[in-house]
Design a protein around this nucleic acid. Structure first.
Ligand SMILES: [Mn+2]
Ligand SMILES: [Mn+2]
Ligand SMILES: [Mn+2]
Ligand SMILES: [Mn+2]
Lengths: 220, 220
DNA sequence: TTTTTATTTTAGGCAAGTCTAAATTTTATA
DNA sequence: TATAAAATTTAGACTTGCCTAAAATAAAAA
């Protein structure tokens, strides 16, 4: 069985919204994520439901069936492997790869993905620190991690991921030279606006709450 | 300006049929190539003509405008670069790459193709010996070459391409161990059925007319 | 040159995926 | 609990790319 790009994108969206909402996803949330109108969502979820890729009860939102989830996860695998390829082999920056991976993720060929995975030495995380599901759908777990936002004074850690992969945010991090692997230490916490002063290498940087709550670190 | 997959495939088909027919391409030839009905072709060529990608006169066939040709050539460039990637880096056999490249050729990103080209060390020919157009549309010329079919007794040469890239043909060549780069010598020519006996390495192989007229060699 | 055949185009229709406007159902608020 | 607001679905329409059947045109044969 093979699915259309639209179907795959719907399943992927349902998957990733579902992770946050506890599996059940509303029509409006999907419409926002997919930048379409709610009525279009209703049309499509009827089709996906007819194909048993999602469970749907009128007015009550949708959730993925196990088949639907399998497909969603495999598209996410494709997406993240391609992102690794673009950054590791084709010299792209981490803020340039998402849109291209959105296209590449829909290329149909099992062998292609298997060989790509091997070619890249079976990476476990993508350029944004997101886990790459294995062929059989298992998401590698990151070691115990925290958000910069919730660190205490004096805590140290290494950046292992971001919670926001929007171009603008990634470019901002690039600009202040905070990328995956960088070590940081919390020097000050300003409780009135939740900003933090951190040390990274020899530099001291102030991070707003907006920023610090989107950076994932491994304590060290 | 960006084009749909269908539009790109039509332009590519018009280009490659045109090379053989002297640019003008008939509705039926296109229908056959694209495996659609003639009426569908008429529909699409009206659209392509309205976009000034082809010249079209009712009942008289179509030809590419310079814009149309530019697009067709750039899709061919994508296709062939991806084929090189699949064979050279992902361990695919030359008979396995065409269908995947048919998908990959439509990925939209100039930077992707530029970087891929560099990553592959700017190859001039694809795994089937077909020339890869440069970024500005120039097709590398193969050095003086001949078809095995038209060699004379005693002639020697190296395989530099095939005129038929169909899976079955490529697999057959694989099986008799004739791939790009192999040296051959013509030992006998059987005029009654135009088959030839050739020597390749230590082995002697008989090639039917069907086969020998689809192998391109550089004399040596 | 007329007739037959092959090619191409037109007419009308269908599925996918989207939209706007209107109707329905659910949820929140008074 | 009644009413207002928000969320969702339905109705009807549009575009893209394809189809079948029929009509029009061009090419080949008689
Ligand atoms: Mn991404
Ligand atoms: Mn990512
Ligand atoms: Mn090919
Ligand atoms: Mn090729």
């Amino acid at each position: 069985m093979s699915y259309t790009k639209a179907e795959e994108n719907y399943l992927k969206a349902i998957y990733s919204i579902g992770v946050k909402t506890g599996d059940i996803v509303s029509t409006n949330d999907l419409a926002q994520r997919l930048e379409t109108k709610a009525s279009s969502i209703t049309d499509m979820i009827k089709k996906l439901s007819a194909k048993d890729l999602i469970s749907y009860e009128k007015y009550k939102g949708v959730s993925l069936t196990s088949t639907g989830k399998k497909i969603a996860v495999s598209i996410i695998r494709n997406h993240r492997l391609w992102e690794v390829f673009l950054v590791e082999r084709l010299n792209f920056k981490w803020d340039e790869v998402h849109e291209i991976a959105e296209q590449l993720e829909h290329i149909k060929s099992d062998k292609l993905i298997d060989n790509l995975d091997d070619f890249l030495d079976n990476p476990k995380f993508d350029p944004h620190g997101d886990p790459i599901p294995s062929k059989d759908g298992i998401m590698p777990k990151r070691e115990e991690s925290a958000i910069v936002n919730e660190l205490s004074l004096g805590d140290e850690g290494m950046i292992v991921g971001v919670k926001n992969s929007k171009k603008e945010f990634l470019q901002y991090l690039e600009e202040i030279q905070l990328n995956l692997g960088k070590k940081i230490e919390v020097l000050k916490i300003f409780s009135f606006d939740n900003s933090v002063l951190i040390k990274s290498g020899e530099r001291e940087i102030t991070l707003s709450d907006q920023v610090s709550k989107n950076i994932i670190v491994k304590r060290s």
